[in-house]
Design a protein around this nucleic acid. Sequence first.
DNA 1: CGGCTAGGTTAACGCTCATTAACCAGCCTC
DNA 2: GAGGCTGGTTAATGAGCGTTAACCTAGCCG
Lengths: 187, 187
Amino acid sequence: MRVDRPADRREQILEVAARLFAERGFHGVSVGDLGKAVGISGPALYKHFDSKDAVLAEMLIAISERLLAEGQQRVDRAGNAADALRALVDWHVDFALAQPSLIVVQDRDWRSLPAPARERVRSLQREYVDLWAAQLRRLRRGLTLDQARSIAHATFGLINSTPHSRLLPDDAMRPLLREMALRSLDV
Amino acid sequence: MRVDRPADRREQILEVAARLFAERGFHGVSVGDLGKAVGISGPALYKHFDSKDAVLAEMLIAISERLLAEGQQRVDRAGNAADALRALVDWHVDFALAQPSLIVVQDRDWRSLPAPARERVRSLQREYVDLWAAQLRRLRRGLTLDQARSIAHATFGLINSTPHSRLLPDDAMRPLLREMALRSLDV
DNA sequence: CGGCTAGGTTAACGCTCATTAACCAGCCTC
DNA sequence: GAGGCTGGTTAATGAGCGTTAACCTAGCCG
């Protein structure tokens, strides 16, 4: 029959898993479901991953790294703190609109990770938060680190709300989120 | 031994369940865990609730109703749209700071509800969103309903981020969230 | 040609979980 | 003081899950 690209099974599994985990939660998707959704069945998954946990781990570590790496690059290219924050907002908004499933899984299911992966993800997230926090503190000198982190967290919450509403087309959602985020940051 | 108030078992179960569900997720807490946490064991829970699902259902319906009812009252008491929005922000911020567990469970685990309860909760949430949306549209005439809803959703995301960070004491968090929320709404 | 490897299959295992069954003690009421 | 709620107990049940075992086939390589 050859319905789907045999491209790379691993990649395919990760994509499909992101969608399913987002819809029904990590524990709401069985290995059997996941297999069926990619056209193989059940235990064949173990030819590609060590465990169900490992699928989640690879998925979450990859996006945390990507979010941080690209964020860092954009900050490096920016001339000043305000520009850096604008660039960070753009990046995060684009990412949230392009990968709503990953956003959902990342903040709903990170608790299901095995301890070492969980620590890795938490640590990458902390770095990402601190990337934002540092720019905020360059811009508004009075801010403590924890204040700046709290502000960053709140703005993430704002942007990450996208997957929960999705009432407008992306072209309308993008500027709306950008402006709300920038106003919330007072940039 | 008599360690805890025997006040009302039902109530106690709901409180403890909120905390546990928030920490480990609905599927991450077994009926046995829940029983142990309130000092009874396992199946005794069925003397108070029809099922594990029913605990979640009662919890989520109750808070959705409370959020809406109080929100409605505050709007009714407000003189104009801007005051109404300020009152809604205050209410939502206070609630999120007082009941972080419920906030977490509500938006992480509503998918685990049995269909009728899920519909009830979704419908109450829609009403609550529309309460905000209506005030936004009174204030900024050009807004479509879906635009206003999207804005409300984003601001909820901002405020509901509280339980994920919690780096500052409530007294510092409250004004920070209030101001960010109001700026995000452009009020 | 012969065998290794990659990527599948189905069957079986063992565990956990929600739920039910069966039973029991104390208390309130008539 | 007999009897029925109320709120517990432990044991059993049955389903679903992640994972492992055992086996198979096709293609590549020497």
